[in-house]
């Protein structure tokens, strides 16, 4: 343990506080801008045209939205998978887990309640 630690060439830093690469070269902002603009234009083009079936349009828009968010994270916020950014990535993943639980859980529970709820007119009759 001591041997490997003393031989390790990496520079240790407090987790999550590595800010190297947070300000990328201007080419990274330009790449991100062009990519994000192209994906956004594709979203609007697909949504206003009528070339896809409703189900495939939903899938396409969701994929395009995720793509745009990734472009923003990578080219604007400069979040990478570098070991130095491990804590940033972990915090992001935990946040995504919470968001997933909240959104999917809410939709699931509310749709179940909706399905199992007595029709409103019969509920009103019972209360009289």
């Amino acid at each position: 343990m001591t041997d490997t630690a003393s031989r390790a060439p990496i520079q240790l830093r407090t987790p999550g506080t590595d800010v190297r690469g947070t300000v990328g070269p201007w080419s990274s902002y330009l790449t991100g801008f062009v990519l994000a603009a192209a994906l956004t234009a594709a979203s609007f083009w697909l949504a206003t045209g009528h070339m896809l079936t409703p189900a495939s349009l939903v899938a396409a828009l969701v994929v395009l939205a995720i793509g745009q968010m990734l472009v923003h994270l990578i080219f604007f916020l400069h979040i990478t998978t570098a070991p130095a950014q491990k804590t940033n990535i972990l915090a992001l993943l935990v946040t995504l887990l919470i968001i997933g639980l909240m959104v999917i859980g809410s939709l699931w529970i509310m749709s179940q309640l909706n399905v199992h709820m007595m029709p409103m007119d019969r509920l009103m009759q019972m209360q009289r």
Binding site: L12, T17, D18, V19
Partner: peptide, 9 residues
């Protein structure tokens, strides 16, 4: 090799 965190970080 341990660097203290910068205030910026």
């Amino acid at each position: 090799r341990y660097h203290p965190a910068t205030r910026f970080g």
